[in-house]
Write a protein that binds this DNA or RNA. Structure first.
Lengths: 233, 233
DNA sequence: AACCAAGTTTGCGCGCCGACAAACAGACGC
DNA sequence: GCGTCTGTTTGTCGGCGCGCAAACTTGGTT
């Protein structure tokens, strides 16, 4: 009897198509651990020794260039795998994963990956799908960076966040983890100043409601119009 | 005895780790076809029915946004797989693949993919590695777009092209397929005007030598210095 | 050889948005 | 309550590089 219940991971897309015995087997080798807010699961450049599944919370994955400038690569949501550097033949982590809120994750040593795929081929298929989705996402982001204006990109980022981490509240969809202007700037290749100005303008129009590290989307259609490039004049 | 010789694909990373019988089996289901310069292998939005391996030539993969603006996603080199939409659970091609020069490719119907991975697990590992490399690449490009100036990005793109499609010539590394200013602009989120100006300036400094759709790198270190952000004043 | 189309060069002006600066506002600890 | 720290707002300025326009060059075609 495993000390972790299989229901923890049964819902994760990464493990879909696996039966109960497989889940138990996989869980038997997993280790669970907490990541307090602000702490990191791994740092860019460290040797990649483990891969992870987020059970609860939210992580921000960032990447630094040699000049020290930083960007937000993605946010990790519950049931997402992360730190899968070895799946792509990388021996060091290409980014840093920081907890945006207190989080809980499972980890497995990298050495188990090959055996797990061999034993459960569905894992490879799921992992490939996840990678593919992230690739699509990255390419879309490149296209957006190339062709859209800052305001459109910020709108797109906010909509995406509302979609993947939004929680319906009294009036509008609230993003339920601390999100600073700086974070949005690093997601959209902008600056916190521009993001701040933009959000203020949107707030004046009733499109969003924002506070310190908090953001609520009040008018999703309006933001979508901005993201699509509809001029408001 | 297959009508295609296994040596055609034996060198491709996608098929590394497979034995001769497996290669023959895979080749038996492949179809070869020519793509004349300027023609497309598939178009963005078409239902994805095949996946491909480039034998010879060079393809340019582009992507359009809803507003009709275009970017260059990547160049496909010989021995690269392309159009692997189904590997990532996509039922339409997310981009358009156009031949930059007369090219030759193999294709397989998508329906064979699942069976091929099941029979030859090394295929899944190779595919995942390739996807991972492309993901790394995309994320690096996002970081570059976010943090670098246009001139640095152009230098980076030229260096990358010289590396993956360069052929040493009399003086310098020559990119051996037709590459327009517009292409470079769509790779670097810039405009052909800016690219033209930049290349002209570089040529004056002896860093490159350029003609109509042709480009030779004469001073790789110089370009690397620009790419890294060293100011020349 | 003459023509044509596609690709390239170059000039000019303006606008977006980044850089800098300084004040402001919550959150937290004591 | 007070002080501090982090995150946010707002103003001003300037420059990079895009948009537009027009001339030029070169390779291919008939």
């Amino acid at each position: 009897m495993p000390h972790l219940d299989r229901s923890l991971i049964a819902e994760a897309p990464a493990f879909s198509g696996l039966d109960g015995a497989a889940l138990d087997d996989i869980l038997a080798h997993a280790q669970s651990f907490r990541i307090p807010k602000g702490e990191v699961a791994f740092r860019q450049g460290e040797p990649a020794e483990k891969f992870f599944l987020l059970l609860h919370g939210r992580l921000r994955v960032t990447r630094l260039n040699p000049q020290g400038q930083q960007m937000v690569v993605r946010f990790v949501n519950p049931d997402d795998m992360f730190g899968v550097a070895m799946a792509i033949q990388c021996d060091i982590y290409p980014g840093t994963a920081t907890a945006a809120v207190d989080s809980l994750a499972l980890s497995w040593p990298n050495s188990l990956w090959a055996g797990m795929i061999a034993r459960y081929p569905a894992l490879a298929v799921n992992a490939m799908r996840a990678l593919g989705a992230r690739l699509q996402d990255s390419q879309q982001r490149i296209l957006d960076l190339s062709t859209q204006k800052v305001e459109q990109r910020i709108a797109g980022a906010v909509l995406q966040l509302a979609h993947q981490a939004g929680r319906p509240s009294e009036e509008g969809v609230k993003i339920d983890f601390p999100l600073s202007r700086q974070d949005l700037a690093e997601m959209t290749a902008s600056t916190l100043h521009t993001v701040s100005r933009t959000l203020s303008a949107w707030e004046a129009f009733g499109l969003v409601e924002c506070g310190r590290q908090r953001l609520t989307v009040r008018n999703e259609e309006g933001l979508q119009a901005i993201a699509k490039g509809v001029e408001s004049e």
